[in-house]
């Protein structure tokens, strides 16, 4: 990350110094502004979900819920601590249903829980790859956009999208299983 950041920083500032020197500062500021907007949005989304999670956790509903997804989780992640397992189940179901606002807080929480325990590098890697290869079933935002622009059959992209999504997730899972060592326990 340091290498990428350094290279882009030097290279782009160098280019801009020659092409349009007055945009350098504004590029930095607008990047920061976008981050601030996102952070505020995240704060609100995160507050709502964490409030609801607390209720779920205290009433032990999240434990019941993750029992449903236990076989799938076991296949993907191996043995994981049960607190992390609850959040991971929620994240995966939110991903599948395309509830994009809810996946991030649950995902972050899962990673934090996993990191509290030793020997979870494999589960963390697998969890990240699943989140980063998209497992969404219904591409709702794209469908809405196509309909609004007057497409004659907006839904004809659903099947290809599902197939492509499945393909990327399967490749991701297989590659993690091949290249990242599962801890022996």
């Amino acid at each position: 990350m340091n290498a990428i950041f350094g290279i882009v920083l030097i290279l782009s500032t160098l280019i801009l110094t020659f092409t349009s020197p007055d945009t350098v500062m504004s590029a930095f500021l607008s990047g920061g502004e976008k981050a601030l907007t996102l952070t505020l949005k995240l704060l609100v989304v995160y507050s709502v979900w964490l409030g609801v999670f607390k209720l779920m956790g205290k009433s032990r509903l999240s434990e019941k819920f993750s029992l449903l997804l236990k076989p799938l989780n076991k296949f993907l992640f191996g043995k994981v601590p049960s607190t992390a397992n609850d959040f991971m189940s929620l994240n995966i179901s939110a991903n599948i249903l395309g509830m994009s606002g809810a996946t991030t807080p649950m995902g972050i929480k899962s990673i934090r829980e996993l990191e509290k325990h030793p020997n979870t590098e494999y589960a963390i890697a697998m969890f990240f790859v699943i989140n980063a290869t998209s497992v969404q079933v219904i591409p709702s935002s794209v469908l809405a956009l196509r309909t609004s622009l007057g497409s004659t059959s907006p839904s004809d992209i659903i099947l290809p999208t599902i197939l492509a999504t499945l393909l990327s997730s399967i490749i991701g899972v297989l590659l993690v299983k091949t290249f990242i060592k599962k801890p022996k326990r």
Binding site: I4, F5, V8, L9, L11, S12, T13, I15, L16, T19, T23, A27, F28, S30, G31, G32, K34, A35, L36, L38, T39
Partner: peptide
């Protein structure tokens, strides 16, 4: 972290890289 990443993306786009 978000600020740094977003600045990175912004520079990446504006500089023409």
């Amino acid at each position: 972290y978000l600020v740094s990443i977003f600045i990175l993306c912004e520079l990446f786009e504006i500089s023409g890289i």
